Computed example of a mutant assay.
Amino acid sequence: MNHPARLAAAVLTATMVVLGTACGSEGGDSPSDPIKSAAGGDGKTSASPSLSASHDGVKRPEIKLSKDFQAHFESWTNSDPKLQAILNGGREELRSKYAAIIEADPESKAVAFYNSDATQATARKWIRQFTDDSDSIIGKVRVFDPQVHLSDTGSGVLFYCVDERQASTKNRKTEKVVKTPDKPDSLIQYRLRLDKSSEGVWKTTSLTTVPGACS
């Protein structure tokens, strides 16, 4: 069975869970230099993430993406150190989910590291949409237009856009490629709330995606 590309992140509200998806169109196998999945022997990622100390002393999981999938974060800097830390937390939360799909590891420790209990289950459910069907992801996404601030309660609020039009899913068994369609709904706005844990990690505590909200 062929499946559409589903790169949009899981949508989470306080009381209900909805999965956001980007409808795809079928694409054939690459005519030359076929891309193997991480489980297939080529385009491998690293093994389970290892912990490394960051500049703030927090031991963080190392997240590596396959050479066959790239996530480009544009203008992902802020002169305010606290806002930069929130940006970093949001970036690594997204990268952890991409890496979990590529590694076929829905129980990824990195996903748990950057998600609260409230969002972790939904993130893993989204990842399993790929892994249960033996799908990985290839190509590239562009992550841009970050908007970040602190709320009155001290939570981080982060909006950003993801352009998925140059990304595809690839089946690990059949190598069938399903391309993300080139249409406005493939530009998705992510809306996150992040809260700082007692360990000093900005974890995602709610996440909503809005397909077509970015131009």
Rank of each mutant, 00 (worst) to 15 (best):
G156R: 01
F144E: 06
R142I: 09
S134M: 12
R142F: 12
V143L: 15
G139V: 02
V157Q: 09
D152M: 12
V141Q: 10
V162R: 07
L150R: 06
L158S: 04
D145V: 04
S155R: 14
G156C: 02
S151A: 12
T153D: 15
D145W: 05
D135H: 09
G154C: 12
D135S: 06
V143F: 06
D145A: 14
P146Q: 10
D135V: 00
F159P: 05
V148Y: 12
G154T: 07
S155T: 08
V143I: 15
F144R: 05
I137H: 03
K140R: 09
S155N: 14
Y160Q: 03
V157F: 00
C161I: 03
T153Y: 09
R142W: 08
D163K: 03
D135W: 10
V143S: 13
G139E: 01
F159D: 12
Y160T: 02
D135M: 15
R142V: 11
G154I: 06
R142D: 08
D163L: 00
P146Y: 10
L150W: 07
C161Q: 02
I138T: 13
D135Q: 13
G156K: 04
G139R: 02
H149S: 12
G156M: 06
F144H: 11
G154V: 07
F144S: 08
K140Y: 13
D152Q: 13
V162Y: 02
Q147N: 06
P146S: 10
H149Q: 15
Q147W: 05
Q147M: 01
F144C: 03
H149N: 11
H149Y: 13
S136N: 08
V162W: 00
H149K: 14
I138V: 15
G154P: 10
K140L: 15
F144T: 10
I137M: 06
C161H: 00
Y160E: 00
I137W: 01
V157S: 04
V157Y: 03
V141A: 09
D152Y: 10
I137L: 08
S136D: 13
G154N: 09
Q147V: 08
F159T: 06
G139I: 00
G154W: 14
L150Y: 08
Q147T: 09
S136M: 03
S134F: 11
S155I: 02
S155D: 15
P146N: 11
G139P: 07
I137Y: 01
Y160H: 12
V141T: 14
L150C: 07
L158Y: 01
T153F: 07
G156W: 02
F144A: 06
S151P: 06
I138P: 06
R142E: 09
S134L: 07
S151I: 05
Q147C: 03
L158C: 05
V162E: 13
H149W: 14
G156T: 03
S136T: 13
K140I: 07
F144I: 05
D163R: 01
S134A: 11
L158G: 04
T153W: 06
V141Y: 02
K140T: 14
C161R: 00
G154Q: 11
T153P: 05
T153I: 09
I138L: 08
I137T: 04
C161K: 00
L158V: 02
S134K: 14
G139T: 03
S136G: 12
Q147H: 05
V162T: 11
Y160P: 04
S134D: 15
V141I: 14
H149I: 08
C161G: 01
V141K: 02
S155H: 11
D163W: 02
S136C: 05
C161S: 01
R142Q: 09
D145P: 07
V148D: 04
V143K: 12
V157C: 04
G156Y: 03
